[in-house]
């Protein structure tokens, strides 16, 4: 549905997006992840036809956005980082105006406006001026605007930014419910969002794609060893050597979690489950076992690993889709306006 090939964007001497390629299949939700200034917004602006690329192509629904901008734009709904609202229009006037310029036939227009306002939960504010809306409502009116012409492709730049937790959940549910009919690209720098909403993730850093995969695979691929967290009430006895002696344990450190007494992180070989031995050892000693759980590497750690650690001249991690990040720092160009 969306195909990006070798996309590059230069602003003078600064390269904001550098040779980015990826595909999104019909009905899929793709998460676009990266630190601020990584080139997410620039890539999205190119995809939506707001600005041309310096190099490479972007195809939306089989149409080149540069060669056939009008036809391609008909199929795209776009929510920019700041919802593009006209402060002196009411919500209904605004959505109606967008319906007109997006080419919604005049017969269907009123119905579409009503449906979309209901779907994005802004119908109760229909007659309020956009300037007087709260941040959460503005964001949802922005979403209504992107949905009004029922586009095949939705491009959402940080759709949950500035929302409160309840609104974030509602918005995510809405986005998930849109998948299937629509192909969605959503950008964010909030990691849990990606694992909760997206089927695939593109991690972008300093203008380059550093990883493309499902959230689960990314986490699994980068995990070298299993780590268990145990909390033990040993009554003052020395726990470290005892647990360290269990077969299969590679290393053990006292946990540095705040407010936790007697917590340890036990690292073991991948594929071996040492929970039984851990529990038995502790119970046999007459200590109290307060907590035992596997520590998952979160997407956050994956993200930090792929966006900060690697250098081109060092051997990289085993995942083959992960390419080295650039070394030269690129000044923030994501929010250049």
């Amino acid at each position: 549905m969306i195909e990006v090939q070798h996309l590059t964007k230069r602003y003078g001497r600064v390269t904001a997006v550098d040779d980015v390629s990826f595909r999104v299949e019909r009905g899929e939700i793709l998460g676009f992840l990266g630190p601020n200034g990584a080139g997410k917004t620039t890539t999205m602006r190119i995809l939506t036809g707001y600005m041309p690329a310096s190099d490479g192509r972007a195809m939306v629904a089989g149409l080149d956005i540069f060669d056939k901008p009008i036809e391609a734009k008909r199929r795209i709904g776009y929510l920019p980082e700041a919802p593009p609202l006209y402060p002196d229009m009411t919500v209904r006037e605004y959505v109606d105006f967008v319906a007109r310029i997006k080419g919604v036939p005049s017969k269907e227009r009123k119905d579409r406006v009503d449906t979309v306002m209901k779907r994005t939960h802004v119908a109760d504010m229909a007659d309020r001026h956009c300037a007087k809306l709260s941040k959460g409502y503005k964001q949802r009116v922005g979403l209504a605007q992107a949905l009004i012409h029922n586009p095949d492709v939705l491009i959402l730049d940080e759709p949950t930014a500035g929302l409160d937790p309840k609104q974030i959940i509602e918005t995510r549910d809405l986005i998930r419910s849109l998948a299937g009919d629509h192909t969605i690209i959503l950008s964010t720098h909030i990691l849990p969002e990606v694992s909760q909403t997206c089927q695939r993730v593109v991690i972008i850093n300093q203008g380059r794609v550093v990883a493309v995969d499902t959230p689960e695979n990314l986490i699994a691929r980068l995990k070298g060893a299993e780590t268990m967290f145990v909390q033990v009430d040993a009554g003052g006895a020395d726990v470290l050597p005892v647990l360290g002696a269990i077969p299969g344990v590679l290393g053990i450190v006292a946990s540095d979690q705040r407010g936790v007494v007697g917590g340890f992180e036990v690292e073991s070989e991948r594929g071996t489950d040492i929970r039984r031995q851990l529990a038995r050892t502790i119970v046999d000693r007459g200590w109290g076992l307060l907590e035992l759980r596997p520590m998952r590497m979160s997407l956050e750690e994956v993200f930090l690993q792929v966006t900060t650690e690697e250098r081109p001249d060092e051997p990289t991690n085993p995942a083959e889709t992960i390419t080295p990040a650039m070394v030269e720092p690129v000044p923030g160009v994501d929010s250049h306006e």
């Binding site: 939506t48 036809e71 776009y78 920019p80 593009p84 310029i101």
Partner: peptide, 14 residues
């Protein structure tokens, strides 16, 4: 300034 130009320029309008 307000960014609404982004709406106009990404709409199917010349």
């Amino acid at each position: 300034r307000s960014g609404t130009i982004e709406l106009l320029l990404t709409s199917p309008v010349s």
